[in-house]
Design a protein around this nucleic acid. Structure first.
Length: 270
DNA sequence: CGCACCCCCTGCCGGC
DNA sequence: TGCCGGCAGGGGGTGC
């Protein structure tokens, strides 16, 4: 579910409700996520105030007090975060509950447990190096030229490589290439300059449009207030195998690339 | 270097 | 109905 636009949507909601609030208690009900939640997380976070909420790629970061500590969250495939008015009413797969000083509570929910919650020194060593964030700037045709030069891997796989560009997942990589008119299987190093420029422009346009609509809700993604996104109704190709291309009516094709379902219009994308 | 293939885990959907 | 396989927005590890 959560790619950059969805994480940005969650971050905006958390920013409004959380900045300036103090986290009073942290309850960990299930620590077996992608990596186990550290045993000292509750002790480190309890009693601290959230001073800012930021996002890099698909990572959510809550800065705590001003002493250089931050809470890091990743929503994995099925993670959601919600804010509710009290600290009761916990449901199945609600793994962490943070009670706030205004009586409300922030809840991390993740059925598949591919998500991540940890605490670390702010700006400190990330577990893995993250590439440029395509919304916060830095994703340019020059950069794309530099990271694709001499590479044979399919452009879609490269766009989804978090160590190069942080935040694109399977939905948006497919959609961006559809808007840019580029075949997902195209060898990265063989793109024309015009195609690289089209991909960079499409990335900005698709992500901006998705963020404006609160992301895409497949299954049950929602923002911190429980509202669903609306971008899924505008997909050009994702999950549209056999349906007509919205531009030329040609049947959308599906193939597997890097183990992930890949959709494209064989006529509009070259 | 970059792929295929395996794993992690739950839920849902379609076919039988 | 139920059971089973396949698939799903994530990432990581292995071996070729």
């Amino acid at each position: 579910m959560p790619e950059l636009p969805e994480v940005e949507t969650v971050a905006s909601g958390l920013r409004r409700t959380l900045v300036g609030r103090r986290i009073v208690t942290v309850t960990v009900r299930e620590r077996r996520l992608r990596r186990p939640i550290p045993h000292d997380l509750a002790a480190l976070v309890s009693g601290r105030a959230v001073t800012s909420v930021s996002r890099h790629g698909k990572l959510l970061r809550l800065a705590l007090d001003d002493d250089g500590l931050e809470l890091v969250m990743h929503l994995g495939m099925s993670g959601t975060v919600r804010v509710q008015d009290d600290s009761g009413g916990l449901r199945r797969h609600d793994h962490v509950m943070m009670a706030l000083d205004d009586g409300r509570a922030v809840i991390f929910h993740d059925p598949r447990r591919f998500g991540l919650i940890t605490v670390r020194a702010a700006g400190g060593a990330a577990a893995e190096p993250l590439g440029v964030d395509p919304v916060n700037g830095g994703f340019t045709a020059d950069l794309l030229g530099a990271v694709t030069r001499g590479r044979r891997r399919p452009i879609k796989n490269l766009l989804m490589d978090q160590s190069l560009i942080a935040g694109l997942g399977n939905i948006y990589a497919n959609e961006i290439l559809a808007v840019a008119g580029v075949r997902p299987g195209r060898a990265s190093g063989r793109l024309s300059r015009g195609q690289r420029e089209a991909i960079v422009a499409a990335t900005r346009d698709v992500l901006d449009a998705a963020i404006r609509r609160g992301g895409s809700s497949i299954s049950d993604f929602h923002d911190a207030s429980g509202r669903q996104g609306a971008f899924q109704t505008r997909f050009l190709v994702y999950d549209r195998e056999g349906e007509p291309c919205r531009r030329c009516e040609t049947s959308i094709r599906r193939r597997v690339l890097g183990g992930r379902s890949t959709y494209y219009c064989p006529r509009c994308q070259r």
